[in-house]
């Protein structure tokens, strides 16, 4: 009985994660602009991998393996959004169409308002 419950949870989470990953890959190819594509890729990197790893946690043979997988989730949730943020930042800083916004944000920073930090 318990085995079956574990199997169902594992399968459900893995299926959800794979669905989100496929959707994110579709989004990467569907969108044209770098920021949109990065958004789709970041979704897959966080939520899709989260669901897949949670599914693996349910199927783990002992509790320590599950704990290690949770640590991997924590690592990925810190690292991968930061990576997406850096890509977006590079795009905004180098693409000429954002130049007005970037200079406006710089000006607000120079005037002391650090909340609009870029």
């Amino acid at each position: 009985m318990l085995e079956w419950i574990r199997f169902i949870f594992t399968a459900a989470f893995l299926a959800a994660g794979i669905f989100i990953l496929i959707a994110s890959v579709r989004g990467v190819y569907k969108f044209d602009y770098a920021l949109n594509r990065m958004h789709a890729a970041a979704m897959g990197d966080t939520l899709g991998i989260f669901f897949v790893l949670i599914g693996l946690v349910f199927s783990a043979p002992d509790i320590w393996l599950g704990a290690k997988l949770v640590l991997i989730i924590v690592f990925l949730w810190i690292a991968s959004p930061v990576g997406s943020h850096l890509i977006a930042r590079l795009e905004v800083n180098t693409n000429p169409i954002w130049e007005k916004d970037v200079t406006a944000a710089r000006r607000t920073i120079e005037e002391g308002d650090t909340h609009g930090h870029l």
């Binding site: 810190i78 690292a79 930061v82 943020h85 850096l86 930042r89 590079l90 930090h117």
Partner: peptide, 20 residues
């Protein structure tokens, strides 16, 4: 000009992640 200078998000996550 290309370095992610004083990026607080990167610095904060690097503070957590680098030792680990």
């Amino acid at each position: 000009s290309h370095e992610p200078k004083s990026d607080r998000i990167l610095q904060g996550s690097a503070m957590i992640l680098t030792p680990v």
